[in-house]
Computed example of a mutant assay.
Amino acid sequence: MPATVHLKDIAASVGSELGVSRWFTVDQTMIDRFADATEDHQFIHTDPERAAAETPFGGTIAHGFLTLSLLSAMNYDCIPRIVEQTMGINYGFDKVRFITPVKSGARVRGRFVLDEARFRGAGMLTVRYNVTVEIEDERKPALTAEWTTIIQFDPKDRPEDV
């Protein structure tokens, strides 16, 4: 279970690694379910025999967007919870790069560095993470990105000095 942190202490963590998630196995069942959900059934994801014969990957690979979507679970797994938070909202991604394909059966984990924390309005905090999804036993990561979220909180909980 991730630790907790108070709003008043967030600024001190800027530039620090906040957490590394547990390993998540990206198996063929997960890939197939993602293909069904997104209607992206390209053979490099869903046909192990053809992917082994016709690609340099030796089998199927996960959709890049599947790997990206795992960031939510990875975040919940390791990022400290803000005590005063009432809701979190995805704001978006910048500089998403899919660097190394994730082969079916591989394990991945997320690494989160707090790049920025900026108070907006009376009850919002914008948080930007530099995220890396690592693949077990691979030199290069699956992806890197800048992920911005908005943390909402009751305005009465806003630290006085920000």
Rank of each mutant, 00 (worst) to 15 (best):
M1V: 14
T4S: 15
H6W: 04
D9G: 09
D9M: 09
I10M: 13
S13P: 00
G15A: 01
S16V: 11
S21N: 08
R22V: 08
T25R: 14
M30F: 01
R33D: 08
F34T: 01
A35Y: 09
A35M: 02
T38E: 08
D40N: 14
F43C: 07
H45W: 03
T46Q: 05
R50W: 04
E54V: 04
E54T: 08
T55Q: 12
T60Y: 11
A62M: 07
H63C: 07
T67E: 06
L68T: 07
S69I: 11
L70H: 07
Y76D: 15
Y76T: 14
D77F: 02
D77P: 11
C78V: 00
I79P: 00
E84S: 09
Y91K: 06
G92P: 11
G92N: 11
F93Q: 04
F93M: 13
F93D: 05
D94Y: 03
D94A: 13
D94P: 01
K95F: 07
K95V: 02
R97Y: 11
R97M: 13
R97E: 10
P101R: 03
P101F: 04
V102H: 04
V108H: 09
V108D: 01
V108A: 00
R111V: 14
V113C: 05
V113Y: 10
R118F: 05
A122E: 12
M124G: 04
M124L: 13
M124H: 04
L125R: 06
L125T: 01
R128I: 09
N130C: 06
N130H: 14
V133A: 07
E134I: 02
D137H: 12
E138N: 11
K140A: 10
T144W: 05
E146H: 14
W147K: 03
W147C: 03
Q152A: 12
K156C: 02
D161G: 01
V162R: 10
